[in-house]
Amino acid sequence: MDREKFSLFLQNTANSPFWVLVQKEIRDHITSIRFNILMVIILLTCIGSLYSALTSIRDVASNIDSSKELFLYLKIFTISGENGALPPFITFISLLGPLLGIAMGFDAINSEKNNKTLLRIMSQPIPRDYLILAKFTGSLFVIAFLVLMLGALIFSLGILIIGIPPTFEEFIRVFVYLMMIVLYIAFWLALSILFSILFKQAATSALSGIAIWLFFSVFYSIIVNLIVTAAMPEDLFQANQTQAMNQEKMTMYMRLSPNYLISEITTVLLNPGFRTLGPVTMEQATGAIPSPLGISESLTIIWPQVFGILALCTVCFLIAYAIFMRQEIRS
């Protein structure tokens, strides 16, 4: 009986206009050349970094103290190949992830507008927000699927090649990390959807997204460095305290950037040895047991960062939503 109800519920959901739009969105993405090119690039880089990580994993494993936990799978994600020829998976994904988000959203609304399909959809008996919600949900589904598939690919190749199954904690850590990556990409997706509403031309919207991405991934740290060092007196005359304060100031500014937030999240999740993200004084460090943190402790450390990205994503999407709901349909 319950099962019948459930299948009826599923059927109704699949037939509801919102999910029809989501299905269309997903279909559009996975059949689009743009998404497939990006997917191939991401897959290739992923396999490349995986290959280099797996070839050097033996050395890493032999270097680790036998008393410590291995966390081999976390190493696969984070170590770079011999002589650093290929950067690790996390570097690739945090670089290409935003690009994926931007690529999937930059023409979400303006292409519908330019094609006049917006008018056609809007003259159907559906609430106006269905369209933008479906755009976001559909793209998010595709992104989540792709990222989780990459995780699965790494795990399965790892098992095949090194022959050791991942521990439960490793699995959870990687899973949480991948979800964080999805969230991070969702932020870029929301941003690019916002641009697709603001700008009539798809090219303008794409470029604006890429400009912001470049700004945060390349220039932002330079600018923060410049500002903080300019505001700080010569090292010689500094007390330790002010030095620490400056360091704190720097991280504070850096944390305004989503890229920095995700890098902190990555560090803590994939290196259980990381105990804190800020500077540590000697007093704080004394007496600490040098063992890896449990998953819940790691999560406690990155909680603010997670909410930071979530907030950024929500704010972007809400602005986009509000503008879209108020916009005149006719261009």
Partner: peptide, 21 residues
Amino acid sequence: VGVYEDLSGKENLTLTARLNG
């Protein structure tokens, strides 16, 4: 008339039909 260019004529129609429930 705005059509989804990547969809066939029939798919364009079924989309509208399904949006109408």
